[in-house]
Structure formats: C-alpha cells, structure tokens
Amino acid sequence: MSETIVFGLCAAVVAGLGLYGAIVNPQPLRKILAFNLLGSGVFLFFGVVARRGAAAGFPGDPIPQALVITGVVVAFSATALALALLLRYFDATGSASLRDGAASNAGPESTDA
C-alpha cells in the first residue's frame, strides 16, 4: 500500500501550495487557480482514504470516490461563477486589481451598475 503514502504526502504538499498561492499571489485569477489547487489536494486526500478502504473486491471505497466526482463538478461551477464575477469586475473598472482605489479609473460601463 505504498501508493497511499506517496500520493497522500503529495496531496498534503499540493494543499499547502494552494494555500500559499491563494494568499501570496495578488492577481484574482491566480488566487482562483491556487484555490482550485487547494481543493484538488483535498480531493486527492479523499482518494487516498478511499484507496485505503479497498474491500469486497473493489479497488477503493466507492462512497468517497463518488463524493469526489460530485465535488469536482461543484468546484467547476464555483470556478465558473468566480471567473464570471472577475471578468465583470474587470469590464466595469478596467482593472483586475482588488486593492482599494485601484478601480478609481472607472470605465464608462460602471455607471449602469
């Protein structure tokens, strides 16, 4: 069962990397990307737990695996919504920065909000 250790530690590092990236990177797009990385580390951890529960002739416990499939689809919906918000913000302000005051050079569209 060495693959559960190898990929489990891999999941831990990926989750840590995602957390680091989500805080350190200033661009919102990079934060969304890092947040997805963090999530996939958690999914991978779930997969390792499922693999450890292999029994009854199945290569892994099917319940956590099915939950990960649901989780991946929900993560995609959340990413799509986050990116749509970001692009709308960018169109309205002409800036992709979240810093206060960075949106002061508002574009013409910001008046119809």
Partner: peptide, 30 residues
C-alpha cells in the same frame, strides 16, 4: 493509480478540460 478510473475521467474532463477552457479564456481577456 488510486483505483478510481471514474474519478480519473471526471478530473481529466471537468477538472482539467472544461476548467482549463474557462481559465484560458479569462486569462486572455485579463
């Protein structure tokens, strides 16, 4: 490798493919 081919299909199709299409489009506009 973790014995989850169903999750592998989902990851490749949605986690990488569709999310990738969304992100590339957003990166180009931003």
């Amino acid at each position: 490798r973790l014995g989850a081919p169903d999750v592998a299909l989902t990851e490749a199709a949605i986690g990488s493919g569709l999310t990738g299409a969304l992100l590339i489009g957003a990166a180009a506009r931003l």
